[in-house]
Simulated scan of single mutants.
Amino acid sequence: MKKLTGIICFALILGFSSAANAQDADDSKVKKEVKEGAHAVEKGAKKTGQKTAEVASKGKAKVTDEVYKDKVGPNGETIYIDNHSKYYWVDKKGHRHYVTEAQLKAKVD
């Protein structure tokens, strides 16, 4: 009976030590996966924030400023006219880009 108890204790100790070593080896993989996941979340959050800023800026421009119906921007963007009669378009990050009347192109339907 003492031999059986000793063998069981030895097997348990051996099992715990090998599990601890396996955990250390997997730990670096887990850290790498967490880092990659955090990067993906950060990238997604940034993209979502930029899209939100774009939608908010365009929405505000449509409400407060006039849309120039006959002309488009240098790359086909919608042109808005503010209360100071300046022309601008809104980019993907929600920033206004002012343009001169000479930079505007005729709208092609």
Score class of each variant (00 low, 15 high):
K62A: 09
V63F: 02
I13T: 11
K46W: 09
V63T: 09
N75D: 06
Q23T: 13
D82I: 01
S28P: 02
A25R: 15
A45T: 12
V108Q: 14
A22G: 14
K86R: 12
D27E: 13
I7P: 05
T5V: 13
N75R: 09
T100A: 06
S57D: 01
K92M: 03
A20D: 10
G37V: 06
L14R: 07
V108P: 09
C9G: 10
G44Y: 04
G94E: 00
I79C: 01
D109K: 15
A61Y: 00
Y87W: 02
V34M: 14
I8S: 07
N21T: 12
D27S: 12
S28K: 14
K2H: 08
C9D: 11
E66L: 02
V30K: 13
Q103H: 08
S18E: 12
L12S: 08
F10I: 11
N83V: 11
K2L: 06
V99Y: 01
I13M: 13
L12Q: 08
H97W: 07
Q50D: 14
K31C: 05
G44A: 07
K105T: 09
K71C: 04
Y87I: 01
K58S: 03
D26K: 12
G49M: 08
G37M: 08
E36C: 06
E36D: 15
C9W: 07
A102H: 12
A11V: 13
A11H: 09
S85F: 07
E42H: 12
S18M: 14
G94Y: 04
D26S: 11
V34D: 09
L14K: 10
D109L: 14
G73T: 00
F16N: 15
K62L: 11
G59L: 02
N75I: 06
A45D: 13
K105S: 11
N83C: 06
K29D: 15
I8T: 12
Q103T: 14
K32Q: 14
L4N: 08
C9K: 10
K35I: 10
G49S: 05
D91S: 04
F16S: 13
V90H: 00
A56I: 02
K3M: 10
K29P: 07
R96I: 01
E66I: 06
K60F: 06
Y68H: 08
A20L: 14
G15L: 11
G73I: 00
